[in-house]
């Protein structure tokens, strides 16, 4: 299938990565693998920002690039806190299996 615009090709790659990350976050049992899926989704969004910045009408305004830079910084903070939480839960429950974390199930 011939995609005329290079932007469409980048957007399709980003959509595919987002779907892969979402599938990983929704189907894996290990909490760390769920975090990996979330990281993939964040990166797919970053790819969209950069692609729109590159092919947008005003790349010299740097809007999309700034959004991607701040998004990378926030994602790093999120990864640190998320993995810290996983380690804390592992210490408490002795497992990272999400199917066994049913303590709050009604």
């Amino acid at each position: 299938m011939g995609v005329a615009s290079p932007l469409a090709a980048y957007l399709l790659v980003a959509a595919l990565l987002f779907a892969i990350g979402l599938a990983g976050a929704l189907t894996r049992r290990n909490a760390i693998l769920v975090l990996i899926g979330i990281e993939l989704m964040l990166n797919a969004a970053n790819l969209n920002f950069i692609a729109f910045w590159r092919y947008g009408p005003h790349p010299e305004a740097l809007t999309g690039m700034m959004f991607a830079i701040f998004s990378i910084a926030v994602a790093a903070a999120e990864a640190a806190v998320g993995l810290g939480l996983v380690i804390a839960i592992y210490r408490y429950a002795k497992t990272t299996d999400l199917d066994q974390m049913n303590r709050m199930k009604g």
């Binding site: 995609v3 005329a4 615009s5 932007l7 469409a8 957007l11 399709l12 959509a15 595919l16 987002f18 779907a19 892969i20 979402l22 599938a23 976050a25 929704l26 189907t27 092919y55 947008g56 009408p57």
Partner: peptide, 24 residues
């Protein structure tokens, strides 16, 4: 989860392909 992810990809891909002619 797999069905939800496939649905999300289908919607996103459809939206990109439908608007491909308007992209720069």
């Amino acid at each position: 989860g797999l069905v939800i992810a496939a649905g999300v990809f289908a919607v996103l891909g459809w939206a990109v392909l439908q608007s491909a002619h308007a992209l720069p």
